[in-house]
Amino acid sequence: MCKCELEERGRRILGLFLCLLDGILALSGAAVAALGLYLNFHLESKMQFLAGYDTGTVPSFLMIVGIAMFISGSLFSKAAFDCAYPDSRGRFQSFLIFFVAAKFVLIWVVFSASMMCFAHRSVIEESLNNGLFSVLKLYKKDLELKILIDKLQMEYLCCGSNNYEDWFKVSWVNEDFLDVEDENIKSKMQAGMYMGHDVPFSCCHIYTYRPCVHSNVTKGTRSKYTPTLNTRGCAGILMDFFESSILEPAGVFILMAFFIEILSTFLARYQQTCIDDANLMEPTGPGTACLCPNIGTGDAMKYVKREEKFKEEAE
């Protein structure tokens, strides 16, 4: 099945090309591990906004896959290089079949890492939506969270979780700083909490010439004031950042490594079967490379004919 006969020169070229592919995979593994660290850094920095999310699961898996790719790629690259030359072939020759098996397993590990990157958007998005809205409720109670929310809204030009109207649904103004005797304030008090159509100053759009109106953004005048506010929610903007800057590029990159891993596995199988076949008669002589040696019809007299040919040449 998919057989071809290679001379010693063909095996050398195959080995060197396989060495190059495995070297690329080793470097790709280092890049995948770095992507895992990069994702972990950004998730940890936003962990206060992620509800019920384990920030270490995907980054840890990417780092493990990357390290496995780097170590295996480095080892397989060295083995392919040594097996390209008869003098050094004996170092790894007996292990080639195990390397091929390990490569086959690694193919699906790499594929799983790629699919995890593509599929993980929905998990992070749900955690962001739930977490951000919950954090808004703590704005007036936790100074550290208040600073984080303000920085987030100013840095990413966003407001609220889904949009700026999320602030209308929570009591984010500390009542201790309000004149609760004022009739206007009284009309907005519900169960002892101030519930007005206001948003924090950090929701103001920094690239507008108009004075920012972030208080009394009422239903009747909302269209007049919204141009001065960031209208996009922080959950969507953060999700766009994670998807377009980390998850999607990482998924595409790892998927490319997956296809290179498949090609490398097929070529490693060809190299292993060709070397084993040549060793049956003459290690530096021609050998048949194939994916499945025992499948399909072959020439049962090949080795007898080859031995007769060597005898005739010797005579």
Rank of each mutant, 00 (worst) to 15 (best):
56 G>A: 10
56 G>W: 01
57 T>H: 02
58 V>F: 07
58 V>T: 07
59 P>Y: 03
59 P>E: 06
60 S>G: 07
61 F>H: 03
63 M>H: 05
63 M>C: 03
63 M>V: 04
65 V>F: 00
66 G>K: 00
66 G>C: 04
66 G>L: 03
66 G>F: 00
67 I>L: 10
67 I>R: 04
67 I>N: 03
68 A>G: 07
68 A>I: 08
68 A>L: 12
69 M>S: 05
72 S>N: 14
72 S>K: 11
72 S>Y: 07
73 G>A: 10
74 S>C: 14
74 S>R: 03
75 L>D: 07
75 L>E: 05
76 F>K: 06
77 S>N: 09
78 K>L: 14
78 K>C: 15
78 K>M: 13
78 K>T: 14
79 A>S: 13
80 A>M: 08
82 D>H: 12
82 D>K: 12
83 C>R: 04
86 P>K: 08
90 G>F: 09
90 G>M: 05
90 G>R: 12
91 R>L: 08
91 R>T: 06
92 F>E: 02
92 F>M: 07
93 Q>G: 14
93 Q>V: 12
93 Q>I: 10
95 F>C: 12
95 F>I: 08
96 L>I: 13
96 L>H: 08
97 I>H: 14
97 I>C: 13
98 F>A: 12
99 F>N: 04
100 V>W: 02
100 V>K: 00
100 V>E: 00
100 V>M: 00
100 V>L: 02
103 K>S: 14
103 K>L: 12
104 F>M: 15
104 F>D: 06
104 F>L: 14
104 F>C: 12
105 V>K: 08
106 L>N: 05
107 I>Y: 08
108 W>K: 02
109 V>G: 15
110 V>P: 00
110 V>H: 01
111 F>Y: 09
112 S>H: 05
113 A>G: 12
116 M>L: 14
118 F>I: 02
119 A>Q: 06
119 A>H: 09
120 H>T: 02
121 R>T: 06
122 S>R: 10
123 V>M: 08
124 I>M: 00
125 E>F: 02
125 E>M: 06
126 E>K: 15
126 E>G: 10
128 L>D: 00
130 N>D: 09
131 G>Q: 02
131 G>H: 01
131 G>P: 01
133 F>I: 05
133 F>C: 03
134 S>A: 15
135 V>Q: 09
135 V>Y: 03
135 V>R: 04
136 L>T: 03
136 L>G: 01
136 L>Y: 02
138 L>F: 12
138 L>K: 14
139 Y>H: 11
139 Y>E: 04
140 K>Q: 11
142 D>M: 05
144 E>M: 10
144 E>R: 15
144 E>D: 14
145 L>T: 08
145 L>C: 07
145 L>F: 11
146 K>P: 02
146 K>V: 04
146 K>L: 11
147 I>T: 14
147 I>P: 00
147 I>K: 15
148 L>I: 10
148 L>V: 07
148 L>N: 15
149 I>E: 01
149 I>N: 03
149 I>Q: 03
150 D>N: 15
151 K>M: 11
151 K>C: 03
152 L>H: 06
152 L>T: 12
153 Q>K: 11
155 E>V: 12
156 Y>G: 07
157 L>C: 11
157 L>E: 14
158 C>R: 06
159 C>Q: 11
162 N>G: 11
163 N>S: 13
